[in-house]
Design a protein around this nucleic acid. Sequence first.
DNA 1: GCAGGTGTTAATAGATCTATTAAACACACA
DNA 2: TGTGTGTTTAATAGATCTATTAACACCTGC
Lengths: 209, 209
Amino acid sequence: MKETNRSEEPNMEERILTEAEKLFFEKGFAATSTTEIARLAGCNQALVHYYFRTKENLFTKVLGGKVKGFFNEFLSVNAGEGDFKTKLARVIGCHFDIIRQNSHMTLFLITEFTRDPLRLEELKRELGELPSQLFASLEEDLQREIAAGRIRKIEFIDLLINILSLNAFLFVVKPLFMQICGLTDQQTEALLDHRKQEIIQTILSSLRP
Amino acid sequence: MKETNRSEEPNMEERILTEAEKLFFEKGFAATSTTEIARLAGCNQALVHYYFRTKENLFTKVLGGKVKGFFNEFLSVNAGEGDFKTKLARVIGCHFDIIRQNSHMTLFLITEFTRDPLRLEELKRELGELPSQLFASLEEDLQREIAAGRIRKIEFIDLLINILSLNAFLFVVKPLFMQICGLTDQQTEALLDHRKQEIIQTILSSLRP
DNA sequence: GCAGGTGTTAATAGATCTATTAAACACACA
DNA sequence: TGTGTGTTTAATAGATCTATTAACACCTGC
């Protein structure tokens, strides 16, 4: 086994991983071939199998870390201190930023998990209790606020779906949206900055009694 | 050429179209094989090519009508009469229903158009002025309401994105959502009935001054 | 009854893809 | 120099996919 490279140019194994990630995100598992991965990485196709044995293996290698990392980050957001609206605004903003940083993964995650439910089960198992932790605390707060008449009556699941919809949907259709509206990258980033604030305001406004 | 069937059991050509549609929607173009289409339709694989010559051909045959029809319906929704909030509620509800009836198409449309921008350009050309008609009228109303202080200040594009996000996102992740929450079809339908009202209320609430 | 059209299948060509194997290559080090 | 180890390639087996072709079954009009 070779020492991991430090500050050298990437070796072939790493280049394969890099190109594989690009292609998998861009075209999905089925439409990506090991031949194409090899071509982009600049090596023989057999080498892809030498390092990773199977395409499936390579796929999970590429994904495993990324996906688990993404959800871990997403579900570990800390609501922090302050009143409910402050905490809520913070969580919404953090989630928006996390999705934004993984923009190209959004659509990919949805399609791959939809098409392969087994992968989803696996992820659920790996994440364990993480989801319930973040949500339990927020739901408790929500019920208290409703009881105190400080926000209108709403099911927790609805609030959750509303936030996720507003935060994620634009990233799901981002390439489409840019093309339809004819936006440059720079204009898109500006719009996203603006959207983050607008989403927070929309959710908070919609919760007023 | 044979007469189109009336009230008889579907002929093989129609069954191929039906099964092809299911598979394309479910797994995308690349992951669907003509062999599998034939198997589900209950015929020899050669027959698929007999009727449609190529897989690409079959794909556009299946899609062409559906997609154009969907967007036509979506963009032809009539705001009708009444004050702004009434009209808005009607448009949101109609859009929700249209997407709901085409539930399985939502994710498919996004992925296919994202992966093949040319198809999108073609669709834009075919739809022509339709999009601007619906939106121009609503935007005008919105500005008037803001000026009159009856709703809070908001960009029209933000309102549009909010509505579309809330209406569409759940359908994009519907299979995932059902699996994660362990919902039956019946439970899901009940949730969707509820969501429709909740989305309308969320949008209207969020617009209060 | 049979000639011709339509629907259907079996067989197969040809392409491409995954995965394996054996051999060539490069380099370290005794 | 030679041997060993890790990297890379060429060649290829075997599977699967798209598409074509030739043959078969069945109906219909003459």
